[in-house]
Computed example of a mutant assay.
Amino acid sequence: MPLACHRLPRFAVGDPARGQDQAAASLDREEAAPAGELHVEGRQAEALKLYERTRRLLADQLGVDPGAELQATFEALLSRRT
């Protein structure tokens, strides 16, 4: 699983809020594709677990919600769309 030992990316220098935004966007992109692939393979439970771990990581470490791409993947999982 992509999040097994996941660490948030660190972005050098600059505004800490901007670094958090970049870290959140990076994690969002990195996890949306694998969750979508699991979903297409019919592995919805695994995809939902991946989404939940990512959502929790974003909330706990950055204080943000999943971005649009990961949220769209989650909504597709719930409606079982591909």
Rank of each mutant, 00 (worst) to 15 (best):
L3K: 01
A4W: 05
C5R: 12
C5Y: 09
R7W: 12
L8F: 15
L8D: 11
P9H: 03
P9Q: 01
R10Y: 05
F11I: 07
V13C: 04
G14E: 07
P16W: 03
R18K: 10
R18N: 02
Q20P: 01
Q22H: 12
A24K: 04
A25D: 04
S26I: 02
L27K: 00
L27D: 00
D28W: 09
E31W: 05
A32S: 12
A35H: 08
A35Q: 11
E37W: 01
E37Y: 01
E37C: 13
L38Y: 07
L38G: 05
H39I: 12
E41M: 14
R43V: 10
R43E: 15
A45Q: 03
A45L: 06
A45M: 05
A45H: 07
E46I: 02
Y51I: 02
Y51M: 10
E52S: 13
E52P: 00
E52G: 02
R53Y: 14
R53D: 14
R53C: 12
T54M: 04
R56W: 09
L57H: 01
A59R: 07
A59P: 00
D60K: 10
Q61G: 05
L62N: 03
G63F: 09
G67E: 07
E69M: 11
L70M: 03
T73L: 06
E75S: 13
E75L: 13
A76M: 15
A76N: 14
L77F: 13
L77V: 02
L77K: 06
S79G: 04
R81P: 00
R81T: 06
T82P: 00
T82R: 13
